[in-house]
C-alpha cells in the first residue's frame, strides 16, 4: 500500500517538477514568465492530439515540447526584445494559451487517449519497494529526475550556467563583459517553454490520459510558486514538488480513513508555506544575495 501511495504521489508531483524546473532556469536568467499555465495547457492538448493521431505518445511529447517553445518564443519576443512588462505579458500568455488549447481541444473531448506506459529498468526494478516505485515508471518520470540533476549541474558547475546566472543577477555587468544578455534570456525562456509543454504532455499522456478543458487546473501557477518555495535551487524544487504531491494525495487518504479535516485547509497549506519561505529567504540577506536572481522581472535595454 505504501508503494501504491508513493506511486500516486510521484504521478501528481512529476508535472509540477518538470514545469517548475523550466521556470527556474528562465527566472535565473532574470525573466519572470507568468505564462507557465498557458504553455502547459497548450502542451497538454498538443500531446493528446498528436499522440491520438499518430498513435505514438513520444510524438505527442515532441509536439508538446515544440508548441511550448513556440509559446515561449512569443513571450520572449515581447518581453526580451520589445521590453514589454513581464507580468502583464505572462498573464496574456496564460489567457491566450487557455483559449487556444480549448479551441484545438474541442474535437478531442470525450475520447480515451494514448497512455504512455511504464518502462521498467532491468535489474533495478526488481529491488524491493524502491524497485517498483523508482525504476518501473513512465519515461517522463525518469526525464524529470534527469532534468533536475541536469539543471543543477548546468547552473552551478558549467560555464554557460555561470553566465546565465550572471545575466539574471547583474545584466549590466554581464553586458559589459561582452555577454549577449538578451540572447541568453531568450534561450532560457525557450527552455522554460519546452519544459512547460512536456509537463502538459504528462497530464494528458500519464496522469489522466484524456483531454478536457482546463486540464491543468492551476498546476502552472503551483509550479511558479514552487520555484520561489525552493528559493531557486533545483533539488529543493524536487523536494517541494513531492511535498505538494503528497499533500494532494494525503487529503483523499485522510478522508477515506474517515477523518474529517476541511480539505480547503490542506489545499491552502502549500501556498501559505510558500509565503513563509519567501519571508524567510528574504529576511536572510546573505541567502537572498546568493540565491535570488537580482534582476528578476526587469527588462534589459543596453545603454548606448
Amino acid at each position: 500500500m505504501i508503494e501504491a501511495i508513493l506511486l500516486s504521489v510521484i504521478t501528481a508531483a512529476t508535472p509540477l517538477l518538470i514545469a517548475a524546473m523550466g521556470e527556474l532556469v528562465a527566472e535565473r536568467s532574470g525573466v519572470l514568465n507568468l505564462g507557465v499555465e498557458g504553455m502547459m495547457v497548450v502542451g497538454a492538448v498538443a500531446a493528446f492530439a498528436v499522440a491520438k493521431e499518430t498513435g505514438s505518445p513520444y510524438a505527442g511529447i515532441l509536439a508538446a515540447a515544440l508548441i511550448g517553445a513556440l509559446m515561449a518564443a512569443l513571450f520572449a519576443i515581447l518581453t526580451v526584445w520589445f521590453v514589454t512588462n513581464q507580468v502583464a505579458t505572462g498573464l496574456a500568455l496564460t489567457l491566450f494559451g487557455l483559449g487556444v488549447a480549448g479551441m484545438i481541444g474541442e474535437a478531442y473531448v470525450g475520447f480515451p487517449g494514448v497512455s504512455l506506459g511504464a518502462v521498467a529498468i532491468p535489474v533495478l526494478s526488481d529491488l524491493p519497494i524502491v524497485g517498483r516505485v523508482l525504476f518501473d515508471q513512465d519515461p517522463l518520470f525518469y526525464f524529470s529526475i534527469l532534468l533536475t540533476a541536469g539543471v543543477a549541474w548546468f547552473l552551478f558547475y558549467s560555464r554557460a550556467g555561470l553566465r546565465l546566472r550572471a545575466v539574471g543577477d547583474r545584466p549590466e555587468a554581464a553586458h559589459a563583459l561582452g555577454l549577449h544578455v538578451n540572447r541568453v534570456r531568450t534561450l532560457a525562456v525557450l527552455f522554460g517553454g519546452v519544459c512547460a509543454g512536456i509537463a502538459g504532455a504528462q497530464l494528458t499522456l500519464v496522469y489522466t490520459p484524456q483531454w478536457v478543458e482546463n486540464i491543468t487546473a492551476g498546476r502552472g501557477w503551483i509550479a511558479l510558486a514552487l520555484v520561489v518555495f525552493a528559493s531557486w535551487r533545483p533539488f529543493r524544487v524536487l523536494a517541494g514538488a513531492y511535498l505538494f504531491g503528497a499533500v494532494t494525495i494525503a487529503q483523499f487518504h485522510v478522508q477515506a480513513i474517515g477523518v474529517n479535516v476541511p480539505s480547503q485547509l490542506l489545499s491552502a497549506l502549500p501556498y501559505l508555506a510558500t509565503i513563509l519561505v519567501l519571508v524567510l529567504i528574504a529576511s536572510n540577506r546573505r541567502f537572498t544575495r546568493v540565491n535570488t536572481p537580482a534582476a528578476l522581472g526587469q527588462p534589459f535595454v543596453p545603454d548606448r
Binding site: 500500500m1 501504491a4 500516486s8 504521478t11 494525495i249 483523499f252 487518504h253 478522508q255 477515506a256
Partner: peptide, 9 residues
C-alpha cells in the same frame, strides 16, 4: 487522485 487513494485503501 481520489480513485487511486480509494484503491490504495
Amino acid at each position: 487522485d481520489a480513485a487511486k487513494a480509494l484503491l490504495d485503501q
